[in-house]
Design a protein around this nucleic acid. Structure first.
Lengths: 244, 244
DNA sequence: TACTACATCTCGCAT
DNA sequence: ATGCGAGGTGTAGTA
């Protein structure tokens, strides 16, 4: 595709909200929260229907450059190149992509109103703990879950049979030092605002790192092994698709 | 493009490491660290040269489904559809994408060995503070920076004229409660290992939230306003590109 | 709008 | 391989 046609197409899709993709040779500059530059190479440029701009190198999962949805797209036809500028009015990020060759490009209006259903999140874990409090301890009684309080956002809150308040923090992955300090912050805030020391914390996660376990013990908190529940089950060992 | 050609093309590019993009109508299932399903709709499927699989809806910056680089790609030609399976051997993630229509597709080998140069990171901030210690305080003397010690990863470490040890934690954005607890953890570990209470902390960032400032004060720590330095300057207000 | 915390976070580095 | 922390993190939820 010649550069002038490319320039026209980019202008068209950005104003008509079509999905656009191209393989190009380009170099890139970025300025905003940081400053970056990327020398000449082959990349994929994507312009989405909400004017998100993504530039991908041939490898790696993440875009090497991007502007979030809501970009203002400008196209400049220069001598021997086309410059695409994506500028985000809110974040003050600007990407300049100087394109010298266009290998291939395509655009189309895509229709998709679906949202993904997801299971196995931290919220699913706190649901599970509320319904199965014995996974925390035999005498744990939950009172609330997922509550935004002045103590912070507490995943599960309850008490034990001795009347000690118990704050449960859920993590869907191996709990680290940062998770322990988060829990500690909630417990301390609760102690301060209730004017009592009779508050403890439980970290619920599938795993915990040794340092995190040590810090947890130092603070008199405990760990409960809990797996994030996954309700939408696909048999992971079944490589064929007979039952779909 | 008909489904059989599509199936052949996907098989080809995944074994020959070409960059592949298609606009399709599909539904998706994911199983791995979580479970997800996404009903029929129009999407862009991307297969990169390192066998990263990305599926984008028409809007939003991030892929709605993905497998990280290194996926094993399988293609199944079924009655009325093609199923693309991306399975990652290390992470045990599996994405199944059932494609019923292919609107457009393109593939090509892209060549790009360039790496992006980036300025304005947290490491740049700690460099700047070491070279300009007065931004922390008039009597701060830096001793080391970016040190992986047994106390943790300390951005800048030094002392003041009274001999108090000072741990500086840099953040390139508005410092939050989590940043304060991170600093607090380093200070406490340092106190413990040095056997002294004569240790304090400084949070260096362009902004700080009110709650974080309050917690910082509670712990006797202080805040220094520091901007992340950006060396690769583009004039943000200059919308044309004369000087590039 | 600002603040908080999750995320299939991803990624790199060091142990 | 695991632990730890940064990221142009992005995104959702709430005040």
């Amino acid at each position: 595709m010649d550069l002038s046609s490319f320039a026209s197409l980019v202008s068209f899709v950005s104003t008509h909200n079509e999905f656009f993709v191209a393989f190009v040779h380009c170099r890139i500059r970025y300025s905003g929260r940081a400053e970056a530059e990327l020398d000449w190479g082959d990349r994929m440029i994507v312009l989405k229907q909400d004017n998100a701009l993504l530039i991908h190198q041939p490898v790696n999962g993440n875009p090497i450059n991007y502007i979030k949805p809501g970009a203002h797209i400008s196209v400049f036809r220069e001598e021997g190149c086309v410059i695409i500028e994506g500028a985000h009015p809110q974040t003050n990020d600007v990407v300049l992509c100087e394109v010298s060759s266009v290998y291939d490009a395509m655009s189309r209006r895509l229709e998709d109103g679906r949202k993904q259903l997801l299971a196995g999140t931290e919220a699913d874990m706190s649901d599970y703990i509320r319904d199965n409090p014995q996974v925390i301890s035999s005498d744990f009684t939950p009172l609330s879950r997922e509550e935004h309080t002045k103590y912070g956002f507490i995943d599960v809150f309850g008490h034990d049979k001795q009347g000690t308040l118990v704050i449960v923090e859920c993590k869907r992955y191996a709990a680290s030092l940062a998770c322990v300090t988060q829990l500690r912050r909630y417990v301390e805030k609760m102690k301060e605002l209730r004017g009592t020391d009779n508050v403890t914390g439980v970290l619920a996660s599938p795993k915990i790192t040794p340092n995190a376990q040590a810090m947890l013990s130092d603070w008199g908190f405990s760990w409960a092994r809990v797996e994030p529940p996954k309700r939408l089950l696909i048999n992971r060992h079944q490589k064929t698709l007979a039952d779909w």
